Amino acid sequence: MSVRRVQDRRGWAINFAVATIKPTLLAATSRTWIDGDKIPATGGCLVVANHMSHVDPLLLAHFVYDHGRIPRYLAKSGLFRTRFVGTVLTSANQIPVERLTKSAVGAYDAAVRAVDDGECVVVYPEGTLTRDPDLWPMNGKSGAARIALATGAPVIPVGHWGAQEVLYPYAKRPHLLPRRHITMKAADPVPLDDLRALPQTPQVVNEATDRIMAAITDIVAELRGETAPAERFDPRKAGVRQTGNPHDTKDRP
């Protein structure tokens, strides 16, 4: 497992996270990191990954950090409204996203600026925990593709498996014993150069999104040793709510 030293200035919030969260992850999980050196050591880039547990952002941050980059996340805005967590996230230059609102444009602009400034921005293209019953990556949203097309930065797909054993989607209690094993793998940049030469029509953005999700799904299928579904799960077609616990009916009319 190759590891690179972080060269960027970290700041107190990143130092705090490394000092408190990383030892917990090391104690609670074992891990196999594969091809993390495919994440560029310097320069603006996007890391895109599947999302199936509330703990996997911490694990993905661990993976990215171990390979020499400080991850900058697009994170749901509600986290920033918690006093302590919000202070840490803001100080660590994370980017709040108002999901499913016009305010999400501000997050897009901030992400483009961050990539253009040479930062490593992490995006979950699905926008929320997968709704697929078998935890396969579902249909992606356009944000990651639009950032990639606007910046020309490399898009590094990452797939992972095992986080659901630590904390299943929307479960309230993690399973820390026995230690769960996490496997995370990066792959070559998603080929998007031909699309960058075209006007950013909805069709071009959709094609870029599909390529990103296909790259992530291919890695997950490899890690699971299974064949992915021929068609990715679409929450809208299935009538599943797009945010929050899809199994919680208390907020429904």
Rank of each mutant, 00 (worst) to 15 (best):
P202H: 08
P235Y: 09
G140V: 00
E165L: 08
S53N: 10
V115S: 09
A221I: 13
P235S: 09
S77W: 01
L60K: 09
P191T: 06
Q242V: 01
L58N: 10
S53F: 04
P71D: 12
Q164R: 09
H175N: 11
E231Q: 13
Y65V: 03
I156M: 07
D56R: 03
L129W: 09
D116V: 11
P246Q: 06
I14H: 15
D194A: 15
V166W: 07
T201Y: 03
H54T: 06
A238R: 13
R232T: 08
T243Y: 02
Y168C: 02
G43T: 08
T42N: 14
L74Q: 08
D66S: 15
T82K: 14
L26K: 14
A187L: 02
I70Y: 10
G43E: 06
R4G: 05
K185F: 04
G86I: 05
R5W: 01
D234P: 03
I216M: 11
A19F: 09
G143T: 00
D56E: 15
D109V: 14
K22Q: 08
H160E: 06
L46M: 07
M52V: 06
A186K: 07
P23F: 12
L167P: 08
G11T: 13
L60G: 10
M184V: 15
P71H: 09
F16A: 14
N206S: 13
M52W: 02
P235V: 09
Y65P: 01
P174Q: 05
H54V: 06
N206L: 02
N50G: 04
R4C: 09
V105R: 13
I182N: 02
D66P: 02
A49K: 04
N93D: 15
V97G: 04
D66Q: 14
V190R: 11
I95G: 03
R131A: 03
A107L: 03
V112E: 04
A214F: 01
I21M: 08
I14D: 12
P178A: 07
A214S: 15
E226V: 04
A49C: 13
A153P: 06
L89N: 05
L129S: 07
A197E: 14
N245W: 04
S103E: 15
Q203K: 15
I212P: 01
T101H: 02
K76A: 14
V155T: 08
I219T: 12
V18C: 07
A17Y: 12
E207I: 00
H247M: 10
I147H: 00
G86M: 06
Q7V: 13
A111G: 12
I95V: 12
Y108K: 02
S103D: 15
R252L: 15
Y124H: 08
T20K: 02
I219H: 13
A104I: 00
R146E: 00
A197C: 06
S142F: 00
F80E: 14
G68I: 05
R9K: 14
L176E: 08
A238M: 10
R4T: 03
P154T: 08
V240P: 06
Y108F: 15
L74G: 14
H67A: 07
T151K: 05
V3E: 12
G159D: 06
D132S: 11
G239A: 05
R4F: 11
S103P: 02
A61Y: 04
D56G: 04
R31P: 01
L58K: 07
G162P: 09
N245V: 04
R81M: 06
A92W: 02
